[in-house]
């Protein structure tokens, strides 16, 4: 007895099913909910054997392996809960780190540790944040997959106790509503109301607690359509591309401010990633 999960094939089948359903009935609320159910079933079928585990395994290896000019592992990296504590660390990020005198998200902190512990140059550490196939694998994505997997089931608990954390949150809030570029788009254009779709893709309302919780706790995710694991930094980067903005720099303050805004709004929800998305 053998069962092969053909990710892309299954995706096409689910899409065909959704279209077939919509063609039979007039495009009413009923057809929309059937389409949503079809997509939900497809997601459920993918849960078993999420290829994100391949990234998690590679990331765990990278975390423990002595690397860089200093031939050191990242095991002494302080992700906020003390040197080397990985379990639950992601659920409290971003946070203020006194040694860097800066609010950092996971990706920025990893770059910091690669520089401080492994002696890698800052430019080298942030060189390849988003992978593309076998030729261009990203170590950051793999490390993020591993570290976030160690927070699965942990309740989001981001603090604004430090003035710099509170400031990051407020600025992130402003950036969320910032409209610009040739299309006047901002985050709020797509993520400011309930029950909206772009084409057939459901859009979470990130101005509400439930929306922010559901969205934030399911990144990073393995994107079946890309065959890649994508981090929250990637999610922000690609949203701004579609907003017709210039390119959001990896680990920039604006990326951390927005992450802070959304992570804090997700407080109280159990973290549930790496997930799998279409």
């Amino acid at each position: 007895m053998m069962h092969i999960d053909r990710g892309l094939g299954a995706g096409r089948r689910a899409a065909a099913l959704a279209i077939a359903v919509a063609l039979v009935a007039a495009p009413t609320a009923l057809a929309q909910s059937s389409a949503a159910e079809g997509i939900a079933k497809y997601r459920e079928a993918l849960q078993d054997g999420n290829p994100a585990e391949l990234w998690e395994a590679r990331g765990e290896g990278l975390w423990k392996e002595p690397r860089g000019p200093a031939k050191a592992s990242l095991e002494q990296c302080d992700l906020g809960l003390g040197a080397g504590v990985v379990k639950g660390a992601y659920a409290q990020l971003p946070k203020y780190f006194a040694d860097a005198d800066r609010v950092m998200d996971l990706e920025t902190r990893l770059v910091w540790c690669m520089v401080k512990l492994q002696g890698t140059s800052d430019a080298d550490a942030r060189k390849n944040p988003f992978g593309n196939g076998t030729d261009r694998k990203s170590n950051i994505e793999a490390l993020v997959a591993y570290i976030t997997s160690e927070s699965r089931g942990v309740k989001m608990n981001v603090s604004l106790a430090h003035p710099k954390e509170a400031q990051m949150y407020k600025v992130g809030d402003k950036i969320f509503y910032f409209r610009g570029g040739p299309h006047d788009f901002g985050c709020v254009t797509c993520h400011g109301a309930d029950n909206q779709r772009i084409r057939l893709q459901d859009l979470p309302n990130l101005t509400k607690v439930e929306g922010a919780q559901k969205a934030y706790t399911t990144w990073p995710a393995y994107r079946v359509s890309q065959g890649e694991l994508r981090t929250f930094q990637w999610r922000l980067n690609d949203c701004f591309r579609q907003q017709r903005f210039p390119e959001l720099e990896f680990g920039s303050d604006a990326s951390i401010a927005l992450t802070m805004f959304l992570a804090k709004n997700a407080n109280g929800a159990a973290f549930d990633a790496p997930a799998i998305k279409r």
Binding site: P246, D253, A254
Partner: peptide, 21 residues
Amino acid sequence: DASTMLKSSFKARGQAGLDRL
């Protein structure tokens, strides 16, 4: 602060210059 931060957080790429901010 948000405007200043945005200016320092993006880089021009392709047809999208920083003037879009």
